[in-house]
Nucleic acid binder design. Structure first.
Lengths: 227, 227
DNA sequence: GACTTTAGTCACATTATGTGACTAATTTGC
DNA sequence: GCAAATTAGTCACATAATGTGACTAAAGTC
């Protein structure tokens, strides 16, 4: 599957950056594939799936996610289209998706796949590295528009776990009182009647995701320009 | 150019939604193409350009923008990849770009092109309409991360013009004092020593875009979820 | 010169956010 | 059993950001 005869090029591929929390950090699912050309070593690459003729992106991306993560019932979104630099599958055009795998569901389909923490990545080809960066940026950028943090948590969770998830995604610490005040104002979670005793310390109440009311999205202009 | 022999399918196309301000509203550049199949009428479509083998997206998108708007020196960004629904050029996959044409530069390359205000669109195919919506949403979503509003203005402008541009993009009125306070805090514009007398009323000072200092992008979590 | 129109600023009320200190409920060590 | 440690959860207050009406300024119109 790694080499195609020249001339019969792939039309395009869908590449999947699957992310999951691991040791208070994001981890990405990579696939071990034999290097192309004269290089006999193996390398880690972002898993990809070839497009079939007539297959639409919704189906194709679901198939690609199933191929790599083993499940298709997880959240994903398109990051964009990429060209340039060598692609492991010889396809000129990659459509990149990022998929979020909840805590504790990060199994691997077989021994060719493994999770790597972002701070402990194996060497990646340039285009691969860039695509990974953009996939992570896509998730971070959506953080306050889209409740993506919840996609990385199990169905019920404590507020401290939720805060840790936001801290992981934002890359900085948050103040507990501020976090909970903002959360309450957004009415995003609802308490369950369960409590979790996590060893030492006071037990924490479990919450589930459940947006109750609409926020009026007023506010003036922001000019939150960074660059 | 409108029909390709069956079997020799296009690999993919780059479609360009070019936007410009017109009558206090956004307008989009559409192209008149003969309808496919047995339909002899013409229809308006989002301009597209076929990919050539070996051409990367940066070059290709510039070429596509030049083909439709006549210039390539304007701001653009990728919106995403689309499949599904008929494409006027028979290509299964479209990579969508949105390009912003400054006020007063909205010429058309020839009589096959025309600008349509968003409130006054001709009938579009379903996929085309959806792509247009996503392109506009992309620009709106970037408004406070990226100074896109300036890409729709000439090099110098009055603060009232800038505010009107934001109001057009946001679809709501802003308070003058708030707007200017936020603008000053972001240090995004600098005054020129020119003034414009626009008929009646006090003349307005002209400004140019010129970010002076970095904003520290602190702030806690936002939870600005709408949906 | 009074009135209209648009530009530009100010002051104050209201709301949002940052932050430390507090109380609560549990385990651990003695 | 009881103090110390640990984590959850809340409060109160200081500071900052935003909403808003009213004001002054400089031009044209009649």
């Amino acid at each position: 599957m790694s080499r195609e005869p020249r001339g019969k090029r792939q039309r395009y591929s869908v590449d999947v950056v699957a992310l999951t929390p691991k040791d208070d950090e994001l981890a990405v699912l990579l696939e071990r594939r034999p290097a192309g050309g004269r290089d006999r070593s193996t390398r880690w690459v972002i898993p990809w799936t070839e497009a079939k003729t007539g297959e639409g992106l919704p189906d194709l991306s679901q198939r690609a996610i199933r191929n790599s993560t083993g499940t298709a019932t997880i959240w994903s979104t398109q990051v964009g289209a990429f060209t340039g630099g060598p692609h492991p599958g010889d396809s000129e055009l990659s459509i990149l998706y990022v998929a979020l795998v909840p805590m504790g569901q990060s199994t691997v389909p077989d021994e060719h796949f493994a999770w790597f923490r972002l701070s402990d990545l194996p060497p990646l080809a340039e285009r691969q590295g860039q695509m990974l960066q953009e996939a992570v940026a896509e998730v971070r950028d959506r953080l306050d528009l889209d409740p993506v943090a919840f996609k990385l948590l199990p169905a019920t969770f404590t507020l401290s776990e939720l805060q840790q998830m936001y801290e992981m995604l934002l890359g900085r610490r948050l103040h507990k009182a501020s976090f909970r005040r903002a959360l309450a104002a957004a009415a995003l979670v609802e308490p369950t009647d369960e409590w979790r005793s996590e060893g030492r310390g006071r037990p924490a109440q479990l919450y589930r995701f459940g947006p109750r009311k609409r926020r009026r999205a007023r506010r003036g202009v922001r000019f939150d320009l960074l660059g």
